[in-house]
Amino acid sequence: MTSASSAKLQVRNISKVFETKKTKTDVLQDISFEVGSHEVVCLVGPSGCGKSTLFNVISQLDQPTTGTVIHTGRLAMMFQDPALLPWLTVDKNVAFGLDRKQYSKTEMSQLVERYLKIVALEQFGSAYPHELSGGMKQRAALARTLIIEPNIILMDEPFSALDAQTRERLQQFVQTLLQDYPVSIVFVTHDVREAVLLGDRVLVLTKRPAHIRSEYKIDLPRPRRSFDSNLDSYIRSITEQLQAEALLYT
């Protein structure tokens, strides 16, 4: 399915060691995977195993100790924290990543308006981030990511801090996004149901140092709903994998 030629993102033999004067922490150990175009790959793994570190390496915010990352097209990351800039209004936060030389002022505000509508925040353009709820902040961050029309989006537990209803809405939103845009997504989550709901494949990571323990192909039609009963068998076996992982060497 993901032959090297159609792959949007190739992660090859990535290892990462954090070194301080006294300690050496192995965080990632020989991680390789590919993400095809229009594919969603979900990563699940124990807390602190190195998922955010892997994303930092993929997005080149951090250097790997060994290995390479190859991607085609534009890559954007949604952080675990919405990371809106508190000194800018929502409008300006959403426009933050747009290249100012490429767009006129009116084009920019039209784009911002369009993407605010997509995340249902059109009435909050002139608010400051502190005036938004947690879910609204995360949606604004999503608009800021989508507006640059990335080919690959890395999402680091983007919905974990949200209430169940908002999360459900945004999960559905991600699925419609997949229909409308040719985008590839790598999605980190703690929530196995969310992984099965959104993923074409789910990769289970081990405890630190993280490597890929197992891989599941989720052969279910879309759109999926989180209460669909055909998710359950996948959820059961992935959860078992994670539990086995938690029991190892403790």
Partner: peptide
């Protein structure tokens, strides 16, 4: 976090100063 947002959007050094 704010600096990482700047880097993620590939801002130049000068723009990191000015905009972040």
């Amino acid at each position: 976090m704010y600096l990482r947002v700047g880097k993620m959007f590939k801002l130049s050094r000068w723009n990191i100063y000015r905009r972040i």
